[in-house]
Each structure stands twice: as C-alpha cells, then as structure tokens.
Design a protein around this nucleic acid. Structure first.
Lengths: 220, 220
DNA sequence: TGACGTGTCAAACAAATGTTTGAATCTTGT
DNA sequence: ACAAGATTCAAACATTTGTTTGACACGTCA
C-alpha cells in the first residue's frame, strides 16, 4: 500500500489505468465495466486497480476529473476569442468549443459520454464537478447572453436563454443514437460540427434579439 | 412455460411485474436492477420473471414499450389542439405535451428516465421504438416547423430547427441533476413546466421567424 | 372424481466479479 | 552490493445474481 504517497503522478501504470478505465467506463458504464477488462486494456495485473486507487469506485471518480480536465484543456470555452470581442462572436466560440468538447473523436471522446452518464445516474463525484468546472462556464455564458440581450446580470430571462443555447449543443450528444436512427446520413466530422455550431448560433441569436417582440403573446 | 399463449394480458402478476420493473429499471438502470428486487416489489416469486418473460432482457424490452405507450396515451403529442389551428399554437401544444411526458411525476415518471438511459446505452429495443413511436412525432414536428418557416417539407433548414426545438425540452430531463445543483430553487411542478413551455415556444418562434435575416452572417 | 395444464414457491446451481493475499520482482538510496 | 520499500503477479475468496429445477396448489373439463 502507498495510499498517501507524496503525489507520484508520473506513475506509468496508474496513468494507463486512467486511460483504459476512461475508455471502458465511457462505453459500457460504471457497473458493466469490469476491473479485469480495464486492467487487461491497461496491460496491468488484476490487482492494479485496488493497489493504485483503493477500489473501483474511487478509480471512477478520478477518471471523471481526469477526463473533464483534459477536455477543457483541449477545447477551452472561448477558444482564442478575446473577452472584449463582439458578443455574437463570443457566443459562436462558446457553442463551437462546447460541441467540440462533447463530440470530438479520439482519446478525449469518452469525456462527453461519462458526463452524459453522470447526468442520468449522478454519483458523489458530480457535486464537485459542477462547482469546479460547470458553474464557471455557466457564468461565462450568462455574461455573454446578458450582453446580447442588453440586460443586467440578474434579469430573469438570462437563465432560460442560456439553457436554450447549451441544450441545443448537448442534444447531439445525449440523443445521438436516436438521431442516427432517424437520419442515418447525419454527419459528425469536424465540418459537420462547424455547421452545427453555425446553425445553433444563428438560431439563438435570432431568438434572443427578437425575443421581446410582440406577436408571441397568446399561445394558448 | 406458456410462451406463445393467446395473449392473456389480464394476468395480474405479469402486470405487477411490468410496473415494478419499470420503477426499478428507471431508478437504477438495467444492469443494477436485480430480478430479486423487482419480484419483491411486485409481490411475486423470484422465478416469476423467467416464467412470464423468459429472461431479464425480454422483460426490459416489454417494459420499454409499455412505458412509452402509457406516456403517449396520457399526454398525446398535440393535446386537444386541432390540426388546422395556427402553427404557433400547435408548436406550443407540441412542446408542452413533450415536457409533460418527460417531466411528469407519478407512475408515468419512469418513462422519461428509461428513454434517457436508452439514449446513452441503446439496446435492440430502441430500433423499433424509434420507428414506431419517435419518427411519427418527428414528422409531425417538421410539418409544424415548415408551416412556421413557410417552406416546403424538403427544406434543409427544417431538420436543424426541429432539433433545436426538441433539444430545449429534453435538456430539462437529460441534465436534471446538473440543473438542480446549479440552481437549487429551480421548480418542476406543473406551473413551472407551463412556464418552461412558454419560454421554449417563444424562443423558438422568435428564432424561426427571424432566422433568415441578415446580421448573423459573419460569425468567425 | 380425477387427470391435466397453469401458475407459484423455496431451494439450489453456475457464472461473473470486486477484492484480498502472500510471494516474487523491481527500484532506490546508501 | 545490499537492504528496504514499492510494485507486480497468479491464485484464491466471498459475494452477488440470473437462471433452473422439481415439488406443490389450484382451477378446469371430461
């Protein structure tokens, strides 16, 4: 046992376990993932998980942090756009980076799946994740929306509009299986993602800049 | 064994098994749900599942159909609105019924959760569900959107806009845990659901009626 | 009444799986 | 080079869980 060792972090098998576990947890979920499969994929012994992380549950928690961190590093919320650019451009950057973060292929792919699973069946790991990672991004988006609407930060329309923006992005992740079955020719390579970002930004901008106009008052 | 019996359907324990299984599958997922717990909740013997449904997997498939059917019966896609009403009203009815279907409390509650799980980890049961239940609703929505946009049914903007509408609804189901952690005072009782429907409808109408206007062309 | 089919029950079976164990191997500092 | 600690390994353990089995209860119909 080493448990409270002075943060080795460069441990090779520990790192490989994180990668392998991310892969497996993302594709089959926490319960269906077996430590045997994870260890096999990591080229480690069956006892490696318990030795390095204590048990399967703590391994999962660490994988979640690891994944979120790597995803945000790869696709920061505003890409390269400067904070004092036009709010329309910031919105577009926010949307595009979010889409890339959750739809991107490659080793960062499983971050989105893990989060989607966490939505449905939250573990204790979600609480800290929301506070440390998600709330800052939510604040950032609300600020952008407030600039577009031209309203103060405590306006009650802010939160619903921000939700409307992110929901359109997450949809393509959370409903992927149904989308593929409904429209098999839907495409999700980088070019397709850019097209999605354009639509979502245009749709949301059109909505928010004309939201307070009349005509839509009596819906019942 | 009875297997291909002449549709008893009035079987008491069979029905109780469906209800109990829906409850359990929805709260803990397919894999974490144990046959023992389902049978205990249904007041049946451990062997009841295998006797009535063959195995756990076929029970799950039947539960999924059962849940979807009950949910659509309770909240039909257009509520009471006539098919030749104004497209704005039809859109509002569509949104509200969808929200009610996925957020409603009570015995129909687990339908939405089951579907959300199916999104993340599709089973073979999803294929038929998409064709029989979801595609008709998707067609219905695209028709409404085409009336609002004033374009033919093969317009390429149709599908993205329809997605933007449903995504805003599903968001409140798929991201419930995060929403509650971000804004603990968010409310989901009937009045709150009605308010959500109003916002989503207004937002989407504003977007679609002003989508083709200029100004939003250069986002990069 | 008595055989028969249907449904229920408790018990047991077989497989999968997270975890532990104790020895073997490698690494490191002196 | 050597001892001490860290790491890896194969094997075994204990528990959970879906499924099966064979006996039993109950209604139905000839």
């Amino acid at each position: 046992m080493k448990l409270n060792s002075p943060i080795p972090a460069d441990d090779a098998t520990r790192h490989q376990l994180l990668e392998a576990a991310g892969e497996v947890f993302a594709t089959v979920g926490f319960r269906d993932a077996t430590v045997r499969e994870i260890c096999r994929l990591a080229g480690a012994n069956i006892a490696a998980v318990n030795y390095h992380f204590g048990d399967k549950e703590r391994l999962y928690a660490e994988v979640l942090r690891y994944a979120q961190q790597k995803a945000i590093e790869k696709h920061p919320p505003l890409l390269g756009v400067s904070p004092d650019a036009a709010p329309e451009k910031k919105l577009h950057a926010f949307v595009l980076s979010l889409l890339l973060r959750i739809l991107d292929k490659g080793p960062t792919a499983w971050h989105g799946k893990l989060m989607a699973r966490e939505m449905i069946e939250p573990t204790t790991a979600l609480d800290s994740l929301v506070e440390e990672r998600i709330r800052p991004m939510a604040d950032q988006l609300q600020k952008i929306v407030s600039e577009i609407l031209g309203c103060p930060m405590n306006d009650e329309r802010l939160q619903p509009c921000a939700f409307s923006v992110v929901s359109q992005c997450l949809f393509y992740k959370h409903c992927h299986p149904v989308i593929l079955r409904l429209f098999p020719d839907q495409t999700f390579e980088p070019a397709g993602i850019a097209r999605l970002a354009d639509h979502i930004t245009r749709f949301s901008l059109a909505a928010m800049t004309h939201l307070s106009e009349a005509k839509t008052t009596k819906l019942k």
